[in-house]
């Protein structure tokens, strides 16, 4: 049973947060979202290193930026893929019949 974050020491929280933040760069952006939710309950602890808040903030910014990028791409893809011809077909995993 892993230790709940409330019972972790400040250095352990920093280590976890750091791992989650850098892990996100390995094409795992959901780790950034997780990072925020994970550290959120202890964000106001006085003994916490300020670096933790940095990692949270950066994770948050990257999550939002990526969300916008993905949402924009999704919108463009859904509306334009039929016009892209062969390229559109290549980018589509499941071709939708009848449209």
């Amino acid at each position: 049973m892993p230790k709940p974050i409330e019972k972790m020491g400040a250095d352990e929280i920093l280590a976890s947060s750091k791992k989650l933040f850098f892990g996100g760069f390995c094409l795992l952006p959901m780790l950034w979202v997780y990072n925020i939710f994970y550290v959120w309950p202890v964000r106001n602890r006085s003994d916490l290193s300020p670096q933790v808040r940095h990692y949270m903030l950066l994770s948050g910014i990257l999550s939002i930026v990526l969300f916008i990028v993905f949402a924009a791409w999704f919108g463009i893809f859904v509306n334009q893929r039929l016009d892209w011809g062969t390229t559109g077909d290549l980018l589509t995993v499941v071709l939708v019949k009848g449209v």
Binding site: G85, T86, L95, K97, G98, V99
Partner: peptide, 17 residues
């Protein structure tokens, strides 16, 4: 009466529909 092919001949031939 569900037809697979859509758009035009180019698109549906490419998809084999």
């Amino acid at each position: 009466s569900f037809m697979w092919g859509a758009q035009d001949t180019g698109a549906c031939l490419r998809k084999g529909w």
